[in-house]
């Protein structure tokens, strides 16, 4: 593969190629998420959650396992909300209990995966799993603030963004391009400045307000 001199330099210093590419991908995915928020109007759980889930997906062996873990986490979050409701617990202990439940369930999922000879699932390294488990706190916070429906909607949005992000970040064309022209990453700076000054209606708002249109 052809690489730019600066990448060669990194490699020469002993930084693995995958790491370099992943780090260069970070601003691109972040910009993509910012674009979806400001121009399209897809909210997700902020910028951090979809970003980190994207990279968790990249780090699991195959997208399907990542999605399985994510769905397990969210499902447990929902379930535990109903289970814990009558106890009226304070916030942090409640989140801690949820994490406990999620941890146990994930372990169960891994075991079941092993049972069905889905060794890929069991072989998923621990860090992406941990990262996704922490999503549960975001989920709980939104549940409290905006209710179950909104939380599920945002979770689905997060999942979709992360899946698209996964495909962007694992596209060979983009990886090769980045290896050849790493400076292209700096383009995200002017793009983000433009996004930061963007005052137009979001695509989602055209739908939200379309009823007013007839009256204008």
């Amino acid at each position: 593969m052809q690489t730019s001199p600066i990448i060669d330099f990194f490699l020469h210093q002993g930084v693995p190629f995958e790491t370099v590419i992943l780090i260069l991908m970070l601003p691109i995915i972040a910009t993509f998420i910012a674009f979806l928020r400001q121009v399209v109007g897809i909210k997700a759980f902020g910028i951090y959650a979809p970003l980190i889930v994207t990279f968790a997906f990249l780090a699991t062996n195959g997208l399907k396992y990542g999605i399985a873990i994510f769905v397990t986490v969210i499902f447990t979050g929902m379930l535990m909300r109903f289970v814990l409701k009558p106890f009226r617990l304070l916030y942090l202990p409640r989140v801690a209990l949820m994490l406990t439940a999620v941890a146990i369930l994930i372990l169960g999922v891994l075991v079941i995966g092993g049972e069905f000879r889905r060794t890929g699932l069991a072989a998923v390294s621990i860090f992406p799993i941990l990262i996704m488990i922490t999503i549960v706190e975001k989920f709980v916070a939104v549940q409290i603030e905006k209710g179950d429906l909104a939380a599920i909607k945002l979770a689905i949005e997060t999942l979709i963004i992360s899946i698209v992000g996964f495909f962007i970040a694992s596209s060979h064309t983009l990886i090769n391009f980045l290896a050849l022209y790493p400076w292209i990453v700096l383009l995200t700076i002017p793009i983000n400045i433009m996004l930061g000054k963007w005052t137009g209606l979001r695509v989602s708002e055209y739908f939200r307000f379309h009823k007013i249109m007839k009256n204008l």
């Binding site: 000054k197 005052t199 209606l201 708002e205 055209y206 307000f209 007013i212 249109m213 204008l216």
Partner: peptide
């Protein structure tokens, strides 16, 4: 054209936050 009209008249989230 109607979309443009909507954009001129409706206050969206971006505009609310940034300009007001």
């Amino acid at each position: 054209f109607e979309f443009f009209k909507l954009n001129r008249q409706i206050l969206g989230m971006n505009c609310r936050n940034l300009e007001y």
